[in-house]
Design a protein around this nucleic acid. Structure first.
Lengths: 128, 128
DNA sequence: CATAACCTTTACGTAAAAGTCAAATAGGCC
DNA sequence: GGCCTATTTGACTTTTACGTAAAGGTTATG
């Protein structure tokens, strides 16, 4: 576990541009610390980027990802706020469950499409 | 099962604007037939829209959705093409599996975040 | 010292996916 | 026929998520 990473190291690891990482910083998703003007990313920042990438692959917008990330942060002190956060977590969970249903249905349709292709190939006497 | 639907019926059902459905038509995703100039959507078109919405929720672009939709269409006659399609299906499947992993990991993190909230609330003596 | 290989900010550009608005037309009903 | 509402096309605008270029600071190496 490295103590920190430079911006280009992370761009290579995650397959994104430096522009992208700086953009996420502007958007308040990550806050690498600085040595002079140069950004240095700690393991925690790296993990955040991993979460951002996951969110992106799942089709969440930057704003939504920001929201999700906020929920991972240390829970604040006030009881009412905690309940609000839990409610938000439940909302996200429901969204993710919807995505899971979408995913399973899409996989099922792909299976059917493949079936149809294989059958058609058998009809044509094409070797698999 | 209705024989067809008007554009506004479908916008209400799917929670999108008429602009969106016309946009999808321009993009070649759907081809409702016309009575005069008016669009009429058949059950097959409706099902296509359902697939488009699923794709959108999963974060696919219009171009990707178009690709996926093409794969559902009747398999063409030529053997080489069928193999190409099957290869594409396998690609999409792998993408979807990645999304599923992302999904499960995100759900797990939400669970942990909720745990932390609940613990913190217990500490504070807040009633659940 | 100069060259390379990094890093920085600032600013403008762009593609995708619609939103919005206008003006024209069509269909249904009294 | 007249009116109302739904629908059409077309054009312009907006938002998101970056890309790209300009102009320059920093550090290591020969």
């Amino acid at each position: 576990m490295r103590e920190f990473y430079t911006i280009t190291e992370l761009t290579k690891e995650f397959g994104v541009s430096t522009r992208t990482l700086r953009f996420y910083e502007d958007e308040g998703l990550i806050q690498p610390f600085r040595r002079g003007r140069t950004r240095l990313y700690r393991p925690a920042d790296r993990h955040l980027i991993k979460q951002i990438m996951r969110g992106k692959r799942l089709g969440f917008s930057i704003a939504e990802i920001r929201d999700i990330i906020q929920m991972y942060r240390e829970p604040p002190g006030e009881g009412g706020q905690l309940k609000t956060i839990i409610a938000k977590i439940e909302e996200r969970r429901e969204e993710l469950r919807q995505k899971r249903r979408d995913l399973e249905e899409t996989l099922a349709e792909l299976d059917r499409a493949e079936e149809a292709c294989l059958e058609r190939m058998a009809e044509l006497g094409v070797s698999t």
